[in-house]
């Protein structure tokens, strides 16, 4: 099973979502914890980035850092632009 921790930045970004979107994130993370390679999640490392993402819906992504093979830190949830801004901050 995948272990997860999160940052305050993740909490803040989650709090900005609607209830429906939070529910989508909840279900995506539940699936990720048990089946990280499930095709629905499209789990991958972003090109040229230290961050990994999973898909919560067609526009919503959860960005995370890999601590080790079974331990990830949730960094942010948002659309493509939000995740791109994370890359710019981390550069």
């Amino acid at each position: 099973m995948i272990q997860l921790d999160y940052t305050n930045r993740f909490k803040k970004s989650l709090s900005k979502l609607s209830n429906d979107q939070r529910q989508l994130v909840r279900e995506a993370l539940r699936l990720f914890v048990m089946h990280p390679q499930h095709t629905e999640l499209d789990f991958k490392r972003r090109t040229g980035s230290k961050y990994y993402t999973i898909r919560a819906d067609i526009r919503l992504r959860v960005a995370m850092s890999k601590i080790d093979e079974e331990y990830y830190l949730l960094e942010l949830v948002g659309n493509h632009d939000d995740v791109n801004s994370l890359d710019r901050q981390g550069r």
């Binding site: 099973m1 272990q3 921790d5 940052t7 305050n8 909490k11 539940r30 048990m34 960094e75």
Partner: peptide, 15 residues
């Protein structure tokens, strides 16, 4: 804001 909070999920029952 970018530090781990330290609330680690380690059991699916607690999800």
């Amino acid at each position: 804001d970018n530090r781990p909070v330290g609330d680690v999920l380690s059991s699916i029952e607690d999800f």
